[in-house]
């Protein structure tokens, strides 16, 4: 397929995904906003006034980046995992693109791009909502954008693996609840790992989300538990690994063919 046609096909997949995101906005965009408002109100305003400052900033400013990331990660993941799963299992409309000359790599890129768009869109919306609770200063806007993008990418790729493997809708909801949320909570959304006992500090370093939250927080506050270069490197490494895994599925037929 010539490159120009591949692009038209890619655009078609992404366009379909984005239209869907906006059509069912009450399922795709609204829930993270509602949850975030609750978090900001409770942890930021109500509890935050008792906690005072952490790492030299008001508590709400400390928690906002982590809470934004929680929404970004789950949205990107769910977008790809659930659309892929539904296209495969319910109406089986994934066949529409499978019978076409569109290369598998373009199909993957299309699904991933929809996930990135939803992840980043939710991230920006939640950030806007956070302005009502406290106006965060943005020390490094480009780092903020970079981490929004990279974490959406990483978790879209993760969502695709989940969508490929899922045999029932349960296996789609299990990962966000039992894997993503704990990783985010334990990744230092609410605390600096310096306040943890040494063992837990070390364990936190094995949690990839720890680097995402710290890198993202660095973009706002200009301070972080670990160096921003390490955070970026971890994300790039994760992207590479997940791309590799998806590439392998791609060669095997994406788990789509009987």
């Amino acid at each position: 397929m010539p490159l120009e046609k591949q692009f038209i096909s890619f655009y078609t997949i992404v366009r379909k995904g984005v239209i869907r995101i906006f059509r069912i906005w009450s399922q795709t965009l609204l829930p993270p906003l509602v949850t975030s408002v609750l978090y900001f109100a409770i942890f930021g305003t109500i509890l935050g006034s008792r906690i005072g400052e952490l790492d030299g900033v008001p508590y709400i400013l400390f928690v906002v980046p982590g809470l934004v990331m929680l929404s970004v990660i789950t949205s990107a993941f769910m977008e790809v995992a659930s659309t892929f799963f539904f296209a495969k299992f319910f109406s089986r409309n994934i066949d529409e693109v499978l019978v076409s000359p569109t290369p598998t790599l373009v199909i993957i890129a299309g699904f991933i791009t929809s996930g990135i768009i939803r992840g980043m869109l939710v991230g920006v919306l939640v950030l806007i909502v956070s302005f009502f609770f406290a106006l965060p200063s943005v020390a490094h806007p480009l780092i903020v954008l970079l981490f929004l993008f990279l974490s959406s990418l990483v978790f879209s790729l993760g969502g695709l693996i989940n969508g490929i493997y899922a045999k029932s809708f349960d296996s789609i909801t299990i990962v966000p609840t039992f894997v993503l949320t704990p990783l985010v909570y334990l990744g230092g959304v609410f605390y600096s790992i310096h306040s943890l006992p040494p063992l837990w500090q070390t364990l936190s370093l094995a949690n990839p989300v720890f680097y995402i939250i710290n890198g993202f927080r660095y973009g706002f506050l200009g301070t972080s538990d670990v160096s921003i270069f390490i955070c970026t490197a971890v994300l790039l490494l994760l992207t590479g690994i997940l791309l590799g895994v998806n590439w392998y599925f791609l060669k095997k037929g994406l788990g789509l063919k009987q």
């Binding site: 397929m1 010539p2 120009e4 046609k5 591949q6 038209i8 096909s9 655009y11 078609t12 997949i13 366009r15 379909k16 869907r20 059509r23 296209a87 109406s91 089986r92 409309n93 066949d95 529409e96 693109v97 076409s100 000359p101 569109t102």
Partner: peptide, 21 residues
């Protein structure tokens, strides 16, 4: 096996897209 939430015109036009039209 088309997406039941889509309109017929969109179903057909999207299919064309997958062929690069």
């Amino acid at each position: 096996n088309f997406d039941p939430w889509m309109k017929p015109l969109d179903v057909v036009v999207n299919q064309a897209g997958y062929y690069g039209i």
